[in-house]
Design a protein around this nucleic acid. Sequence first.
RNA 1: GGCGGUAUCGUCUAGGGGACUAGGACACAGCCCUCUCAAGGCUGGAACACGGGUUCGAAUCCCGUUACCGCUACCA
Length: 481
Amino acid sequence: MKRPRVRFAPSPTGFLHVGGARTALFNWLYAKKFDGDFLLRIEDTDRARSTDESTRAIFEGLEWLGLTWDEEVVYQGANVARHYADAHRLLDSGAAYRDFTPPAETERLRNEAEARGESYRFDRDSAMLSDAETAEKLARNEPYAIRFKVPDGYTEWPDLVHERIAFPNKDIEDFIILRSDGTPVYNMAVVSDDIAMRITLVMRGDDHISNTPKQILLYRALGADVPQFGHVPMIHGADGKKLSKRHGATAVGDYQHLGFLPQAMLNFLALLGWSPGDDLEVMQLPELIERFNVHGLHAKAAIFDTKKLEWMNGQHLALIPIAELAHVVAPLFEKAGLATVADLESRPEWFHGVLELLRVRARLTDEIVQLATTFFGESVEYEAEAIGKQWRDAAVTGEILQATHDRLATLESWEPAAMEEALRKLAEEKGLSGGKIFQPLRVALTGKTVSPGIFEVLLYVGREHSLARVAAAVSFLKQGA
RNA sequence: GGCGGUAUCGUCUAGGGGACUAGGACACAGCCCUCUCAAGGCUGGAACACGGGUUCGAAUCCCGUUACCGCUACCA
């Protein structure tokens, strides 16, 4: 088999959309799986809507996801001369013809037909002129568009995702390939570029299904090999409509900033519209490549379920090597004003330990930072709910905390096992359940009713700060009493 | 309107004529574990759009209906 060449061809009119990212991912996976090339083409021929900022956002999104491309980026706008030449090649060969009809006239006819409830089809016979008429208009320098002469018959292809799709050619009107200002139209540009890039498989969103017969006709008229096609379904929002801004975050950059891991995003996206065929869900990139196959591609539109994405992120948060997580998350700690990256790097054992404690309790990297606040700073703010729930009787609680403080202070080693033994013994002496000691202590240390295991908290807050916090809680309770 | 596509729990999906009492995951509820919270384990409710065929047998194949989506530009 020929080395496959696939491409992702976004137009730079916005950020990298999750749907686009998934199309890119499937192409990328295909290239990796079958030892081919994954190319990137920026379709910037719509000058009015294309921006450099969007182009950059697409690069950044793809890079964040790790979907790297194999050759230099192709800018469609740089190839208009070839698009023009290809269109004229079709004109010269008789596969296309000049249309001198003013656009306004065509539009009028179309509107009239629609008003009558009829479907409009461009009328080739009235547009195709005799050689003499054409020569005359040409001599007068009248502008013309080039229209493709759709042949009789039908056009079909075996789609990778669907089975076989067929269109009767009579339903395809003679479409314009070159505007009267000499610029190429989308279908012309795409085919010209895909031929030039030697693309063997065009995998794209299924909103392009009805463009495909037109493009196949163009390939044939140009004498080029028709590539394979695969049309993957769209991604919809929770209301079943095409995903758009109304649904909230739709750009992959949004998810990056929300605290998602790229590997989780990739994993989630891969499972939207593709299945490995068994019950395996959580996969790393190498496994995704290994398991990827065309057969698992689905034809049905999928709804983007943020809840499942979050769950997936939690799974990957638990799987990622701790050092890698530290690397990703350290800048977020710095941004939150908790510690500098340098500080965290200087005590990796402590930092990794804290992350180990929190990764399983968080679904987003941002949540890890939030939860980590407990382990920084000297003072603790007590939540009203925590006081109400665990510190109801100030006098009794103060006494318990004082005893807890004293017992911990006598400890020679600041190890969870030793601390647990000491405090359980204290509870027994006082005839209390462990919880009666641990819960008030938790509030003293964190100000909250929930936290990681109390002995881990003690360990990572550290001996000095822990004892200080408990002492502070005791005096707080005395004042209140 | 025309053309094309799609249809399994609320959501993502397994399913390729008999292994289907339809499996897994998210979400939800309950229980277990337990110093709280997570994580984890267990349990539960929850689906083959509808109607016709084909067949000994249909979630699976065919046809129709319905619903939804896309395209229908001198946009991409």
